[in-house]
């Protein structure tokens, strides 16, 4: 754009205005969609969070009571921390596996690479509910594949979903499995974009594989990582269908992730105030952590329009 402006400085104002109109037109569908189906419902949720509402009797304004109730509920704070812990277990591992996958796919022959790319995407096709059911059966105590494998390795069988120490960890597997396809493909896309000549010259300088990754691949893929980190974080901390199907939040709340707690309140409470207020507080948590990640990994392109 700016080349053109430099060439014809007098036309600048006109071009800008024309560009502004066009920009508005092209943005209109997205902005309308987000306004009607995201921002407007959000505004109404915020409004509702100050009321006691059971749908059949009049709304009663209760001020900050719903928020106070949520913050005063130790289960909510615990579930948010648990959600962050779950994210910390899932996202780095997912990125690591995706990175390994992309590295392998990049370096094997084209046939094998094609097969890999196709396979990795396939689990994405399965719905979360079905995947959870598959893993419930895999994690069965006797007769489950997981304990069969553990037995082959000579270890004791585990109550993967019945033991509070294991349940959340057991859930990382289906979570990673479902999300791996897209993460890997995007990772591979970024990796294939790094010019081969960079590696060639690094090899001439005697840099090994690990050094090549640290000094060439990682810096050049910063934006890919940022994108995958942010989307991985927001998706994973919101996960609730997997614990809902596999354990309904137990045993002893060990898999009660924040969205599952909110969903439970939404389903069973007589008033929706608590669940709406809790959901807004969760938004605040996710929003501020994401903003922090953006800032830490400060990427010019990502933060500046």
């Amino acid at each position: 754009m700016y080349t053109r402006q430099r060439q014809r400085p007098r036309a600048r104002a006109g071009v800008n205005r024309r560009q502004g109109t066009l920009a508005c037109l092209m943005l209109l569908p997205a902005v309308t969609g987000l306004s009607v189906f995201v921002l407007w419902p959000l505004a109404r949720s915020i409004y509702l969070s100050f009321y006691q509402w059971n749908f059949y009797t009049d709304n009663v304004f209760v001020g900050w009571k719903n928020f106070a109730d949520v913050l005063g509920d130790p289960k909510f704070a615990a579930s948010v921390i648990r959600g962050l812990l779950f994210t910390a277990m899932v996202v780095p591992l997912q990125l690591l596996i995706a990175f390994a996958f992309a590295s392998v796919a990049r370096s094997v022959g084209p046939r094998m690479a094609g097969a890999l790319k196709m396979t990795i995407y396939i689990p994405t096709v399965v719905s979360t509910v079905i995947a959870s059911l598959i893993f419930v059966v895999i994690y069965q105590f006797s007769g489950g594949v997981a304990n069969w494998l553990v037995g082959l390795a000579g270890a004791e069988p585990q109550a993967w979903l019945g033991d509070a120490a294991w349940a959340l960890r057991a859930m990382t597997v289906p979570t990673i499995w479902i999300g791996l396809g897209l993460t890997s493909l995007i990772m591979l896309a970024g990796m294939l974009d790094v010019p081969e000549s960079y590696y060639d010259s690094a090899r001439l300088d005697g840099a090994g594989w690990i050094r090549q990754q640290i000094y060439i691949t990682l810096p050049l893929m910063k934006n890919v990582f940022l994108y995958l980190l942010i989307t991985g974080f927001t998706v994973t901390i919101q996960q609730f269908e997997i614990p809902l199907v596999m354990t309904s939040g137990g045993p002893a709340d060990s898999t009660l992730l924040p969205n599952l707690l909110i969903f439970r309140h939404f389903r069973y409470d007589d008033n929706v105030g608590f669940s709406v207020a809790a959901a807004i507080l969760l938004f605040a948590v996710i929003g501020s952590i994401s903003a922090l990640v953006f800032r830490l990994l400060r990427s010019e392109k990502a933060t500046d329009a």
């Binding site: 949720s45 927001t234 969760l282 938004f283």
Partner: peptide
């Protein structure tokens, strides 16, 4: 960053 649960009902 808006959790789907935040706006499910509304």
């Amino acid at each position: 960053f808006i959790p789907s649960m935040t706006i499910l009902l509304t």
